[in-house]
Design a protein around this nucleic acid. Structure first.
Lengths: 219, 219
DNA sequence: AAAATATTTTAGGTTTGTCTAAAAATATTT
DNA sequence: AAATATTTTTAGACAAACCTAAAATATTTT
């Protein structure tokens, strides 16, 4: 496996996240994600195409090649292992591991990554509930669902929070919802689609549909 | 404390190591250390001077300012903490921690560094026996001496190996000398300045002056 | 102290990754 | 389907960090 620059890695990672299962990504989408200008995206797409990491036809968008996906999964593996390390070993709050992991993920040493994995006990999910790819790039397809879609009275565990704005995090803290919180939906109000939740023995309370749409649970 | 690029940090660190206590470093010395051309050194010296990290008069050499030294000690702190982490927690051999630490040291997050320090139990020396600066940049002046200068029959512990070429490391392995090895000098031969060493109860053996000059011990 | 040698700096060029502004291609509206 | 709007690409520039070759300065030798 060759080595790629920090910039190249950031582009690859962003495309991976944007393209989903089988989608194609556009120049503007990626420019927006990376907070760069469209012209910069085009430049980099030409380079990554020449390295055979993605398929790209001018004006037609792009998506990762199998090789590009492998590279992306390597980056994501490092990112999530470091996030786990920061939260588990260094006692960072799970809301603040992301930025540091963003830097650590670019340290390229297969031996480091694999030894870190071993040291951490081969964790399968990072502190946000996202699955960690293994050495070969295999990733667990977590059957996580959106809290908004959880059937009534079915207990589930919060495993991911997609919006990580400070407003969102403040709200979660206030409601005592975090990764790992076990809860169930007691009622759905047709009027505004808000949900009544229950956490353990505590009195139930209501959250908005907007909030529920950003919380994911493992059933 | 501002942030510096990886390149800038590498220059600062190299100057710190070359200048010793109060010396001045020349363009060629630094070019040789960093395996770069002299013209590149001059470019960077102008930049670092404009950032007030060093004193520099054209043709007269340069040395770090107090601010530059503080930056250097920060880098060295990170480098040595990561080396300790790699050896102690991830079970890297102490001969192979350097290159990976060289990458990790450039991850700039005060919180990460200080939490790592705490996690490791505030270690005072890295796996090569070099002292680790504390948060404020204070560094323990280890009273280490060269094995070539150790008085006869005085027990000491190997704490540093300055030449880390593979030839050197192979030789150390063969002679069963490593960081932490307790030994004493039984005899000095005037003819070639070779030393007769004794490790614990084992039969004594001889090493060359050249080798002894690259081994440091804490008395 | 003048000549010869060695070191250091300057001048100008390259690559990577970014940018702006203009041109080209595509998509949408009327 | 023509006009308009949007998206994407091209062209050309810039900063960082490196390079080579030539010029300037310092040091050493004779």
């Amino acid at each position: 496996m060759l080595n790629y620059s920090t910039s190249e890695e950031n582009y690859i990672k962003a495309i991976y996240h944007l393209q989903g299962t089988e989608g194609t990504v556009t120049t503007n989408e990626l420019a927006n994600e990376l907070r760069a200008r469209p012209a910069s995206i085009t430049d980099m797409m030409k380079k990554l195409k020449s390295k055979k990491l993605l398929h790209y036809q001018p004006y037609r968008g792009f998506h990762l090649s199998p090789e590009g996906k492998k590279v992306a999964l390597g980056i994501i593996r490092r990112h999530r292992l470091w996030e786990f390390f920061l939260a588990e070993k260094l006692k960072f709050d799970w809301t603040e591991v992301h930025d540091v992991a963003e830097q650590l993920e670019h340290v390229s040493s297969k031996k480091l990554t694999d030894k870190l994995d071993e040291f951490l006990g081969f964790p399968r999910f990072d502190p946000h509930g996202d699955p960690i790819p293994d050495t070969s790039g295999k990733i667990e397809s977590s059957r996580k669902i959106c809290l908004a879609d959880l059937p009534l009275n079915k207990t589930a565990v919060v495993c991911q929070v997609s919006d990580q704005s400070s407003g969102m995090l403040e709200m979660l803290r206030h409601k005592h919802i975090g990764i790992g919180t076990r809860l169930e939906v007691k009622k759905r109000f047709a009027f505004d689609h808000s949900l009544e939740l229950k956490i353990r023995q505590q009195p139930s309370f209501t959250i908005s549909q907007q909030l529920a749409r950003n919380i994911f649970v493992a059933a």
